[in-house]
Design a protein around this nucleic acid. Structure first.
Length: 414
RNA sequence: CGGGGUGUGGCGCAGUUGGUAGCGCGCGCGCUUUGGGAGCGCGAGGUCGUCCGUUCAAGUCGGAUCACCCCGACCA
């Protein structure tokens, strides 16, 4: 591993997520709001992506990847090329002066791409998704990887023949999202939140995770698992909705949150603006219904880093840690090295991801780094315990170590 | 974009009324250490963000510019 840990975070980082991720060697700051993902960070990112991918596939999603370079024509059809309408465009030009945009979202691109495939009601529904690096010319980047100018997003788009079909899928997507946040370990603190809608629905839904450094504020009813974005709390539609759910505004708790996902119903808006229609069973041309479903993958990583970190550093769950085991040898006795090598090979063979800190460093330094990196399980091979045929084991979240045989260790890690 | 602040070895910082840059961590070598970020010794590493100016002399003074941070606005 080429990365090193730092005792002190760079002075220009204030956000806890970025401070810890930089100190532990997960990310590198290229410029404001732009971060590189180093080997450890990339592993976390890929694990989060894999969980999302599995749930998207379970919904019938088909993965693809769209382009960063966008032609302006498709976006002009929906007025969203205009800098007055969308103020976060990065735009550039070809050598021949043709204007291009760098993608900040992909609704128009997807609709344009799918045009030849949407001809008949038999072609629908279509559910496609991608993991894409989005580029947004934010006036002010902040909060480390929680709000960058370049970030990884999962965006899914679904096309349907009717409002009914879209609504049904939309609800399935909400459930899939809840499973994703559960698997990522933030399910308990993540709430489906009413947010501003569009022309075709009263509301959209955001997934808001309780996080003291988040940028949003929601009104929350934990008992009924209902939340409202504060920007919508005085909206008449919300007032009606709360009344329907028999909730008094005074029962709601105001909490600070970070938006980790959203789902949005575009109705037939995009299809009409971009003039993409299909033939229904009677041969009549109709616009399709479009839903879009986003998760800020890198932001979720930042939120998790913030939420679970303690005074010693990052804390990852087994599901998304860069490795499950941090293996430490104490001293360089032949016997220790031989046994650590053996254990390292056995762990790899068992499919357990392991980082072996084989540096010629003192134990304290290795312990500190294991904790800073937040690797969930720490295993120590020492001359003292080796004499008794034991290993030391300690989970990241506990302060107490225990001595185990190799067999018990493997049982624990199963 | 409005307001405020900061740029000095890889990281964190000091540098007085202008006189030619220093500390801690980290890094290299040696010896001693070896279960919670070791000790001693030696050493490497800096166009002081950049440009222009003032001056015999600029890290220090003036102007411009670039970058970064914070607060606000923005986030469809």
């Amino acid at each position: 591993m080429f990365t090193k840990t730092l005792r002190q975070a760079p002075a220009d980082e204030v956000a806890k997520n970025a401070q810890l991720l930089i100190r532990a060697g997960f990310i590198h700051k290229e410029m404001a709001g732009v971060y590189a993902y180093l080997p450890l960070g990339l592993r976390v990112l890929e694990k989060i992506k894999q969980i999302i991918r599995e749930e998207m596939n379970a919904l019938g999603g088909e993965e693809l990847i769209m382009t960063n370079l966008q032609p302006k024509a498709a976006w002009e059809k929906t007025t969203r090329w205009d800098d007055e309408v969308v103020d976060i465009w990065f735009k550039t030009k070809l050598k021949d002066e043709t204007e291009l945009g760098l993608a900040w979202s992909h609704e128009e691109a997807i609709v344009q791409m799918l045009r030849p495939y949407v001809q008949s009601y038999k072609d629908l529904p279509i559910r496609v998704y991608q993991f894409q690096t989005k580029l947004r010319n934010e006036l002010r980047a902040k909060s480390g990887i929680m709000r960058g100018r370049e970030f990884v997003m999962k965006d899914m788009y679904s096309l349907h023949v009717s409002k009914h079909d879209l609504d049904a899928f939309y609800n399935q997507a909400v459930e899939a999202y809840q499973r994703i946040y559960d698997r990522l370990g933030i399910g308990e603190d993540t709430f489906v939140t009413f947010a501003s809608g569009g022309a075709f629905t009263k509301f959209s839904h955001e997934f808001q995770t309780i996080c003291p450094t988040g940028e949003d504020e929601i009104y929350l009813h934990r008992g009924k698992n209902i939340a409202v974005n504060s920007e919508m709390i005085d909206d008449q539609g919300i007032i009606d909705e709360l009344h329907r759910l028999q909730i008094e505004k005074s029962e709601l708790e105001k909490v600070r949150t970070a938006e980790v996902g959203n789902v949005f119903n575009f109705g037939v808006d995009k299809a009409e603006q971009m003039d993409v229609e299909f033939a229904d069973a009677s041969g009549q041309q109709k616009p399709f219904y479009l839903g879009s479903y986003g998760i800020g993958v890198t932001r979720v990583m930042g939120v998790i880093a913030e939420k679970f970190a303690d005074e010693r550093g990052l804390v990852w769950s087994d599901a998304i840690a860069p490795a499950r085991v941090y293996l430490i040898n104490i001293g360089n006795d032949d016997d220790v090295v031989k046994n650590t090598t053996k254990l390292y090979e056995e762990l790899k063979k068992a499919g357990i991801e392991v980082i072996w800190d084989d540096r010629d460093a003192r134990p304290g330094e290795k312990f500190a780094d294991a904790e800073l990196m937040g690797i969930p399980h720490r295993v120590v091979v020492s001359p003292k315990l080796l004499a008794q045929n034991l290993l030391e084991y300690q989970p990241r979240t506990l302060d107490i170590a225990e001595n185990l045989t190799t067999e018990t260790l493997f049982d624990k890690l199963k």
